[in-house]
């Protein structure tokens, strides 16, 4: 029990991480895959932020009478990582929009079928 309560932040992080990763691997819909990727990345942000928290510590702003502060560095790092993550998602969604325009679908198996037919010259009958 102590393990569960003592490390609950890490457990939450691992749960979210696995959840996001599972969505990325298992979903065939391109937008859902990106959602999974976002969850996966966000779990890492929570990991960093919770790492910096000290019990009883305040925000890292100098105040008279306070001696215990949370570390500001991970928060700064994650600020950068959030920007990266947003750019990734935005770029991914932009590519999905163009895939929709070019193929008429955002389902991975349908796109694979279209590409297979284009490459080999016969319709894809592997899965039907």
């Amino acid at each position: 029990m102590e393990f569960v309560f003592g490390y609950y932040n890490y457990l939450a992080v691992v749960f979210l991480m696995m959840l996001g990763f599972y969505i990325v691997v298992s979903r065939g819909n391109l937008v859902k895959t990106l959602v999974g990727l976002s969850v996966f990345q966000t779990s890492v942000f929570i990991f960093y932020i919770s790492l910096a928290r000290i019990r009883g510590g305040t925000a890292p702003i100098y105040v008279e009478g306070e001696t215990l502060y949370s570390s500001p560095l991970p928060q700064v790092l994650i600020l950068t990582a959030i920007v990266v993550s947003i750019s990734t998602t935005a770029l991914g969604l932009a590519i999905v929009v163009r895939i929709r325009e070019a193929y008429g679908t955002i389902e991975e198996d349908e796109i694979d079928g279209i590409e297979y037919a284009e490459e080999v010259g016969v319709p894809d009958i592997r899965w039907s």
């Binding site: 990763f21 990106l34 790492l51 590519i95």
Partner: peptide, 27 residues
């Protein structure tokens, strides 16, 4: 080629997973 789009998408997903793994390791 329109397949460039799916290639870029796949690259983006795999590349981001790789980068996130690196951030976890760094963390």
């Amino acid at each position: 080629d329109r397949r460039a789009l799916t290639a870029a998408y796949r690259y983006l997903i795999m590349g981001s997973i790789g980068a996130t793994f690196i951030v976890i390791g760094v963390g």
